[in-house]
Design a protein around this nucleic acid. Structure first.
Length: 480
DNA sequence: ATGTGC
């Protein structure tokens, strides 16, 4: 691409995008020799420059190693803003508000399951977990129930029989973002989400059974309850049509609002957190985030049931306990130390995972000595990683890390490259059993559509931001 | 990501 901004290499895993033109701060790119080419080739760097030009930005505008061009911010973008001089931006959070990941451990050894049992698990999960674009679930919430979901988050699901109380302890923010206001969520958004609680969705969302194939940090793995050979369950989903509509609604509203903060890139439209429209967006964003937390909790319950029924194992013997649940599309008001001063900042993580270091007050006691589990799923054929947050992350990245592999090919390009191929058969040859509602999804989501998550994990580890704890390999993957 | 376009 012509006119690519000049990058200065800082070290093996970091590049500086120096402040220039309208930028108010530097850009900082995490990458490596293999991945930096893709970041240069799409619009990621220009988007980082645009982030850096937003008012009230504190610290650098960052791109994680899985970054690629997105709407407004790149996917993999991290930026922090002063609550008074700064902004909040729907394009800095993403369309899928609180898209996120959770990981559950089990008491089972994967090798004890034969191929037939894994196939039956794939069939049961595919049958019992509603998936696909526009797909509804078993429940249709009335307005009162929906209000509670939007304010209570995962706790609503647990309190209504879809999980156990201990699940909440291991969710980021306990699965409930404060100051959510259902009244800031449009009727249209509510109606889109009303029957979508406990549904997977489509695209890169998945439910996966995997096996722990490597433990790199024995102490951390023990604290997280992970051991080699263990069967684990990954769940990746978000706020479905409801969050999507909220993002859409507030982008439209901002375009007509006198308090909107405009950028040369109209996708970056933003508002002061204190403006009426900014306050409304934040309250609706929080409500959508709570919907997503409740959704992943419902999906967890469905998966526990499907697995227990299929294997005829009691919940106690299955031991599907939550390791952690992270939000990777969200803006949060957090306290960070900047130039030796504690400041409240609106940290936008869009396709980026929070990565709190040891002894952070928001960690559950079980993880206090270790740091936060940083869930970093890869593509459906290769691997996924559990990393751990660090003090360095708190000083370097506002406690943020990568959110996964990140797309390498556009959806259109992936579909083109998959023409004439049977992705399901290719995955079966590498012993991954996949079930997808739509053939097009498999093409868009095939392993070569993604960056190599091994590189992503190595960058996060070697930069000191998020050391590797464990690696898992996929066995069964359910897609929309 | 998304009732995958207005």
């Amino acid at each position: 691409m012509a006119d690519q901004p000049a990058l200065q290499r800082l070290d093996a895993h970091r590049w500086l995008l120096p402040r220039q033109g309208k930028m108010r701060t530097d850009g900082l790119i995490f990458s490596d020799d293999e991945l930096i080419g893709a970041v240069r080739a799409d619009g990621t760097l220009q988007q980082v420059q645009a982030m850096a030009a937003l008012p009230g930005i504190v610290g650098p505008a960052m791109a994680m190693p899985d970054a690629h061009q997105g709407y407004g911010f790149p996917i993999g973008g991290v930026a922090a803003f002063d609550p008074h001089a700064g902004v909040v931006s729907p394009g800095g959070v993403g369309y899928d508000i609180n898209c996120g990941v959770r990981l559950l451990r089990s008491k089972l050894v994967a090798a004890d399951l034969n191929h037939q049992q894994l196939t039956r698990l794939a069939d049961a999960l595919a049958a019992q977990i509603p998936a696909g674009v526009g797909q509804g679930g078993a429940k249709r919430l009335d307005d009162r129930q929906l209000d509670r979901v939007l304010t209570q988050g995962a706790a609503w699901a647990v309190n209504n029989g879809h999980g156990q109380a201990t699940d909440l302890e291991f969710c980021e923010s306990n699965g409930q973002i404060p100051l959510a206001d259902p009244d800031q969520v449009s009727t249209h958004a509510r109606n889109r989400g009303r029957d979508q609680l406990g549904t997977l969705g489509a695209g890169n969302h998945f439910v996966e059974l995997g096996v722990v194939e490597l433990v790199a940090d024995a102490d951390a793995a023990q604290a997280f309850g992970l051991f080699p050979g263990q069967l684990v369950l990954w769940i990746h989903s978000g706020s479905r049509g409801l969050g999507h509509q909220v993002c859409d609604d507030y982008l439209k509203r901002l375009r007509q609002d006198k308090d909107a903060v405009h950028s040369p890139d109209s996708q970056l439209i933003a508002a002061s957190p204190h403006s009426p429209v900014g306050q409304s967006y934040l309250a609706a964003m929080a409500a959508s985030a709570n919907f997503a937390f409740a959704n992943r909790q419902m999906l967890t319950h469905l998966a526990r049931q499907a697995i227990g029924q299929t294997l005829q194992i009691s919940p106690a013997n299955l031991g599907l306990a939550l390791v952690y649940d992270v939000a990777h599309n969200i803006a949060k008001l957090e306290t960070h130390t900047v130039h030796n001063r504690q400041r409240q900042l609106w940290v936008h993580r869009k396709g980026a995972t929070r990565a709190l270091g040891p002894n952070h007050p928001e960690l559950p006691p079980r993880y206090a000595a270790i740091g936060q589990p940083v869930l970093t799923p890869g593509d459906m054929g290769r691997a996924s990683y559990v990393l751990k947050g660090s003090h360095l992350a708190e000083t370097l990245t506002f406690a943020s890390s990568a959110h996964g592999a990140g797309r390498r090919l556009s959806r259109a390009k992936a579909k083109h490259n998959a023409k004439g191929r049977d992705i399901s058969a290719e995955l079966a040859q590498t012993n991954v059993i996949v079930r997808a509602k739509a053939r097009a999804t498999l093409a868009e989501e095939m392993p070569d559509a993604y960056k190599n998550v091994n590189n992503i994990a190595a960058i996060m580890q070697n930069s000191g931001v998020a050391p590797i704890v464990a690696k898992t390999r996929p066995l069964v993957c359910i897609k929309g």
